[in-house]
Design a protein around this nucleic acid. Sequence first.
DNA 1: CCTCGAAAACCTGTATGACAGGTTGTTATT
DNA 2: AATAACAACCTGTCATACAGGTTTTCGAGG
Lengths: 239, 239
Amino acid sequence: MQEQTDPPGEPSPGLVSTAIQAITQHIRSEGLAPGDPLPSEAAMTRQLNVSRTVVREAFRSLSAMRLIDLSAGRRATVAKLDTGAMSMVIEHGITTQQISVQQVYDVRRTIEMRTVALAALRRTKTEAAAIADAARLMRENFKNPETVMEHDIAFHEAIAAASHNPVFSLIVTAFSGVTRRTWVIGWRTRSSDEDQLKMIKGHEDIADAILKGDPRLAAEHMAQHFDKSVKALLDAGIA
Amino acid sequence: MQEQTDPPGEPSPGLVSTAIQAITQHIRSEGLAPGDPLPSEAAMTRQLNVSRTVVREAFRSLSAMRLIDLSAGRRATVAKLDTGAMSMVIEHGITTQQISVQQVYDVRRTIEMRTVALAALRRTKTEAAAIADAARLMRENFKNPETVMEHDIAFHEAIAAASHNPVFSLIVTAFSGVTRRTWVIGWRTRSSDEDQLKMIKGHEDIADAILKGDPRLAAEHMAQHFDKSVKALLDAGIA
DNA sequence: CCTCGAAAACCTGTATGACAGGTTGTTATT
DNA sequence: AATAACAACCTGTCATACAGGTTTTCGAGG
């Protein structure tokens, strides 16, 4: 048993926060990698000298942020990098009107101008093919907006992946949720088939530039794509 | 009482996840703003027909992501946009070696090249003064690395704030934790006082450009700053 | 009628015990 | 040696209890 009878040194921000820190500290100090198991709830309960309630809420919190994976019967394991928490933060900002859709698009533009250039420089052949495939599938399904949207999102995520910097992937993917909620609006403002196909053509131009390995051209096409998308949203009255 | 005896339609990803979704959904559908109160645990317990344990774990999870604020005795309230969750995700990626410090710096460079340009265009006088102050305090305390670092971080966050896009602030602030862990390493490689003062001069140049309202010049100085910082980290052997 | 303060009602934080059901390692049987 | 039953362990959920903190109520006194 421990002898930490809560010395009056700390203002104690709650036992759960302490437990969360203890767990992340454990991951750090043990140098755990994704997939590695964490101590059981019972073990943590003993180690921290608190109730299982507290330990459970700590584990559950980390699971909500996708830092660990929980599943019944099994020990908790260290999680692979996941965009879950970031998505929720962004969504929360949007729904509580602390950030606007246009602000998100500004950030996306900044980031994707870079990912597309990096992708042109670093993409493997497989990645270039995946990007081109997404663009092709947009065209083939262009009568079905929902499907076009999903391939559009996959297109941007594939570019981020081809940048070979997971932090970019993380951020771009976190924005996908916002895209899902606003995409259709932009699509509708492109009333004619011609406009819609022109937008798809823009994606194909980007994919081509990446395949050619021309970062400047790729960035230029990406810039045009974003300018048109933002304009479409503004036309639709999205603040 | 509800009549939702768990129809066998859904594979049920756990009651807690369901509760989390119900709460965020409540925020959305009621159009709640930061500071607005949420239903009590008891109310949620009745509404969802689950135990308080489940509801508590849901609230606690949202609190861990800083989407809501909890405090004893009071109802939970909708939280202001906060970087807590994003920071933890990034830190987790670093400690589990799924992302490298250099990758974080690449993203920072991309983003801050933009925030600094926006700051030059949009900053208020107060913001320009805050940025200049941070640079000044770096110089005044340059014998005390810890203090210099804190003002350095404040400097970059002030620039992000002056971009008037909270999403940029969110991301830049989320990276501050990583900076705190690696900053000293970069500082040490600048062995001489001269080198260290030169680095501080770089910050002052950025502040001046922002004050002048010259986005191009500001971005140029920021680029140089990052190039030197990354070089310092690489020299120190940070992968 | 208004003010002020104390009690009541409500709320969250933490602990404990219980049980269902999933997972894993062990053992006994074939 | 392969396999099937079993035991041990683990997480998911529920019910209950109580200690404090916060808000509301309400009555006493001015």
